[in-house]
Design a binder for these strands. Structure first.
Length: 890
DNA sequence: CCCTATGAT
């Protein structure tokens, strides 16, 4: 890492370069860019040629035949298809992903010779190849419709069971009693619902004819209790605070832990949830005198609610007022004072604090909690904090994680010692399906009913991928329950996803009426963010939606992907919080063992890093390529981020931060949006632009579209449309809401999400405050929209597309085919030049949030980036087709 | 004609 000492970081300002050298550098830079563009283009052509040449003819014919059949079938059963389209959609996603992977490998090999690769990169390449091969074999096997490929765990001997037991090393210690218990469990290995213990009625027969066979392959043992208590036993008697503190698993380790912190500078804490580490460790250290010299103990959390509730709990335990000795800081809310010695905060908040206090001088201890979640912010914090520890030997670091993978953290922090703390969890039996399930939504419905009919009371938690899937599942389930009538106990079905209005979310916390059972159909939100009590059964189909950023095309795609083993175990653990539970995995044991990745790919390797790079630059870290990342992001992503920052004027040609860049870094938004906001002053429309920025920040969760009122919701949305484009529609929405005095009722009437609007209002207020700090005047009052659109263009001139033909557009930068999203106000207008806020791949390449612009604005706003020649209108004059290819060919 | 998981500054 090339960084000067903390005191010097803000001194190097490089805006004072002479004009000559700047000109020279720009010329050189342009030349380099052209060369790079040519190389990319040549590579694309080569790739196309290779694919055509290398394609085995027979395979091609088979594939063509298969595709044709598929199309024919599609035509025949369009109505039927709607029901099964979900499934096909998943298939398509998988195909796309395979192709992407293949392209990645070809790219990689073309661009980088084997010799120049580091060991890690070589390994990565090898890994990708293996992955591709595995995926292709999987496809072949599916073609043959053979299930033999899936090995059943029936032949598991005593020795091989160990492979299937997912416990961490600490818990693997041989315990004869435990072993015996497991053996008993294995004896009744094949677990079939409704076989004996339930008297079948006709209705049950109807219900159970398509039942699923589950196999119990393993048990995830609990960590303290050996006896399995009844649910009623779990209602704990009231304990005093002191008694509760002493009953926590961490308590016996108190003195030992303090001694370890005193001895070592960095300590990795491995502890299961429920050990009490988050609430207790800061208190122990406080008592041990780590706050004596007026310094604080900091503790980061990945989520706002966690930071708030933990702080509240600790304040209560220490019998102080929240905000005094114990406080928390999250965005929009700083609940700390000068007296605060224990401070909880979100990782993003600490990240931002680095800008004003780059050496964490006011802290004596920093605890990074939930490190295994590997959020973008914790990943960056690792690098920063490791660096600081070097020149601040008095600063203690605690990295706390729950995974098996603590060795990785330990190695990263120069072989820091690992301290283990036991957790408290009840055992969970894990069941796998005998054969893979094709339609997991249907399989979920069947499993839910099987549990409901045959298993003792206790609520069920089902993990699905999205709102749409949850709604389908809800309908199916309701239908089938209705058919069963009063012959089964009451089943309360509750959906749960982040975009669900809060009052409906709150329903999951209402106690289940006696004799009834709750089923919660949830997205990933229930995996980490929300914990629901009384869950005894978990159904896990093994999928989740994940965002991927492709730096080659600058496009994001949201894909349904198989979850990782770590994630699967996290889900299973949700069943063992209050009593022994059961987890039903809708995939085979073989799949679990061989097909799931060990851990989820960390966020830092999957997303656009524009914001993060700007922030690191603002901290004075210039050499990002050699920044000490725990897992480095793809090189291309870093390069793209740097390139964009340069084009925006945030970096000079040395890659150093400019004055503009420093102001941009002050704003908690993406670089392009920061530029837009800063440019608004010049165009006398900062009030409007700040509103638009705030609305764009809430991520498209403005319009509420319940399935049963889609038509109403859509017409309501169209009332806000503005001819000039979607950014102005959003402005309309916000201003009308403001004129209604921020009314909740108004939101209901117009199918607007009140929660998102409140958030937009918070973001807006924060931006307005920061504008004053960077000395930008808030101005407004123009009626026409040209200025607003010009201000937007000065931030987003990277995101321009021109109309080509057949309703399709070509991006100016990559010459890529894209279309306007059907939810856009411009979907039917099709202007010649458009600016888009984001590019997403769902079923096609879509531009979301689009406005119409005039090409001459680009010359006005970004003369360094666009030349008049490439903006000539090919539609008016007779020009050869290649004109559309812009500078790539010239 | 769309099919937005989850966090956070």
């Amino acid at each position: 890492m090339s960084r000067q000492g903390p005191s010097k970081r803000y001194e190097s300002d490089s805006d004072s370069d002479s004009v000559d050298s700047a000109e020279e550098a720009r010329r050189r830079d342009l030349q380099e860019r052209d060369e790079f563009a040519n190389r990319l283009k040549k590579r694309d052509e080569d790739r196309t040629r290779n694919v055509v040449q290398n394609f085995d003819k027979r395979t091609y014919e088979e594939a063509a035949k298969r595709l044709k059949l598929d199309h024919a079938g599609r035509d025949k059963v369009i109505s039927e298809l709607r029901k099964t389209s979900r499934w096909k959609y998943l298939e398509k996603r998988k195909d796309d992903k395979l192709q992407e992977l293949e392209a990645d490998i070809v790219d990689d090999e073309y661009l980088f010779e084997e010799e120049i690769l580091t060991e890690r990169e070589k390994k990565e390449r090898q890994h990708k190849k293996e992955l591709l091969q595995l995926a292709q074999e999987h496809e072949k096997a599916r073609e043959l419709e053979r299930i033999q490929r899936y090995h059943m765990p029936r032949d598991l001997g005593k020795d091989s069971t160990a492979d299937y037991i997912e416990v961490d090393e600490l818990e693997k210690v041989p315990q004869s009693e435990q072993k015996k218990w497991e053996k008993d469990q294995m004896a009744s290995a094949v677990f079939k619902f409704g076989a004996k213990d339930v008297k079948k009625t006709d209705d049950y027969e109807l219900l159970l004819e398509d039942q699923i066979d589950f196999i119990q392959a393993l048990q995830m043992p609990g960590s303290s209790e050996k006896k399995v208590p009844e649910i009623s036993d779990v209602q704990k008697k009231k304990l005093t605070i002191e008694e509760t503190k002493k009953s926590l698993p961490i308590y016996p380790f108190k003195d030992d832990l303090i001694a370890a912190v005193k001895e070592y500078q960095v300590l990795i804490i491995k502890g299961e949830t429920g050990s009490g580490k988050t609430t207790q460790i800061p208190q122990y250290l406080h008592e041990a005198g780590f706050t004596a010299d007026g310094k604080k103990i900091g503790c980061t959390q990945p989520r706002r609610v966690a930071a708030m509730s933990v702080a509240a709990r600790v304040a209560q335990e220490m019998d102080v007022k929240l905000g005094n000795e114990v406080g928390y800081a999250i965005r929009f809310e700083d609940c700390t004072s000068e007296r605060t010695v224990i401070k909880y905060m979100t990782d993003g908040t600490l990240h931002r604090e680095f800008l004003s206090e780059p050496d964490l001088q006011s802290y004596s201890v920093m605890i990074i909690d939930e490190a295994h979640e590997r959020t973008l912010h914790t990943d960056i914090l690792f690098g920063l904090v490791k660096d600081i520890a070097r020149f601040r030997p008095d600063l203690k670091l605690l990295i706390s994680s729950a995974t098996l993978d603590v060795t990785k953290f330990s190695e990263f922090f120069d072989d820091a010692p690992v301290y283990q703390i036991p957790g408290r969890r009840f055992p969970v039996d894990i069941y796998y399906t005998k054969a893979p399930e094709a339609d997991y939504v249907d399989a979920c419905v069947v499993s839910i009913l099987q549990i409901h009919v045959t298993q003792p009371l206790g609520d069920i938690l089902v993990f699905l991928t999205g709102q749409d899937e949850i709604e389908t599942c809800h309908e199916l389930l309701q239908d089938r329950v209705r058919r069963l009538g009063s012959k089964v106990k009451e089943l309360i079905i509750l959906p749960l996803y982040a975009n669900l209005p809060s009052d409906m979310q709150a329903k999951i916390f209402e106690p289940t009426p006696p004799g009834a059972r709750k089923v919660i159909l949830a997205t990933n939100i229930a995996e980490t963010s929300l914990t629901i009590d009384n869950i005894i059964y978990v159904i896990d189909p093994g999928f989740a939606k994940q965002n991927h950023f492709n730096s080659r095309t600058g496009m994001e795609s949201l894909m349904v992907v198989p979850i990782s083993k770590a994630s699967a175990n996290q889900r299973a653990g949700r069943a063992g919080r209050v009593a022994a539970g059961k987890c039903f995995r809708l995939y085979t044991a073989w799949s679990y063992k061989h097909e799931l990745e060990e851990c989820t790919v960390p966020e830092i390797q999957r997303i656009n890093l524009g914001n993060a790079v700007l922030m690191l630059k603002a901290l004075g870290i210039n050499d990002l390529v050699h920044f000490d990342f725990l897992d480095p992001p793809p090189h291309e992503t870093l390069v793209l981020a740097l390139e964009q920052l340069y084009a925006l004027g945030a970096l000079n040609h040395h890659g150093e931060l400019t004055k503009l860049g420093r102001r941009m870094a002050e704003l908690p938004v993406d670089p392009m949006m920061a530029k837009m906001v800063l440019a608004s002053e010049k165009y006398k429309c900062s009030e409007e632009i700040v509103t638009i920025g705030a609305m764009l920040s809430v991520n498209g969760a403005i319009f509420y579209r319940p399935k049963d009122k889609i038509i109403h919701a859509d017409t309501a949305r169209k009332n806000f449309y503005h001819m000039a484009g979607d950014h102005l529609s959003l402005l309309n929405v916000y201003n009308q809401w403001r004129d209604s005095d921020y009314s909740l009722q108004w939101c209901y009437e117009n199918f607007i999400q009140h929660r998102s609007m409140k958030r937009a209002r918070d973001v807006r207020e924060q931006l307005v405050n920061l504008m004053q700090r960077v000395e930008i005047e808030m101005v407004s009052g123009i009626d026409e929209t040209d200025n607003i659109r010009k201000a937007i263009t000065s931030g987003y001139f990277y995101h321009i597309a021109r109309f080509s033909k057949g309703g399709s557009y070509k991006t100016v930068k990559h010459n890529q085919s894209v279309t306007i999203h059907p939810n856009s106000a411009l979907f039917e207008t099709l202007p010649r030049w458009v600016l888009y806020h984001e590019l997403v791949f769902t079923t096609k390449e879509f531009m979301r949030q689009v406005i119409e612009i005039e090409s001459k604005w680009l010359l006005e706003v970004a003369p360094h980036y666009y030349k008049a020649k490439e903006l000539e209108d090919s539609t008016n004059k007779k020009m050869p087709k290649t004109v559309g290819r812009s500078k790539m060919t010239d």
